[in-house]
């Protein structure tokens, strides 16, 4: 119980903050509550299949398979898979991090995990279609074509910048999470 309270302390503080905000500015506060309820619904709608897939991946796909397709030495195949998996996702970026943790556990190469995160953040297919509809094909396609190499370059730079033992530490940390 004490552990629960400690873990959720920030949540209670945030709720209290929204309450205070509503007292100070009723209209804006109600708007904030409305938007929060909306985001909550969105989260409740999008996240369950992602976490079920994450669980299935964790339990059924052997580490060796993941290493073969996306681990060290997976080369271009690993990069393409990372982009495809990230792009097939739905939902906000923070949904990608728990998946990344399972990838770490399964021995996916660090730069491929970063590419996956990058793809999830910005080349998601449903979002792309929506972008085409709202801002036009020229806008969306230009952004996509700049983003794909950009994501890969950023991932490779990050992987090169972070020392190996630090990466190992992150992988060990992920091991504890699931």
């Amino acid at each position: 119980m004490k552990k629960f309270l400690k873990r959720y302390l920030m949540v209670f503080l945030a709720i209290a903050g929204v309450g205070l905000f509503t007292l100070l500015n009723r209209e804006a506060g109600l708007r904030a509550i409305n938007i929060t309820a909306y985001s909550f619904k969105e989260m409740a709608l999008v996240l369950p299949p992602i976490f079920i897939l994450l669980g299935l991946l964790d339990v059924w796909v052997p580490r060796e398979t993941m290493v073969r397709y996306m681990g060290e030495g997976s080369g271009l195949k690993g990069i393409v898979l990372a982009i495809l998996l990230g792009s097939a996702a739905a939902g906000p970026l923070y949904g990608a991090f728990p998946v990344a943790a399972v990838f770490m556990k399964k021995g996916v190469k660090f730069s491929n995990i970063l590419i996956f995160i990058g793809a999830w953040s910005t080349t998601k297919i449903p979002m792309f279609l929506f972008e085409v509809a709202s801002l036009g094909a020229k806008f969306a396609v230009t952004r996509l074509l700049v983003d794909i190499p950009g994501i890969i370059i950023i991932a490779l730079l990050l992987a090169a910048l972070i020392p190996k033992d630090k990466v190992r530490q992150l992988y060990e940390n992920a091991e504890k999470m699931n």
Partner: peptide, 16 residues
């Protein structure tokens, strides 16, 4: 817990 804090913050921010 982090998810919940985020959506609460987003709510306030979007209201502003």
């Amino acid at each position: 817990p982090e998810f919940l804090v985020i959506i609460l913050l987003v709510g306030v921010m979007m209201a502003l």
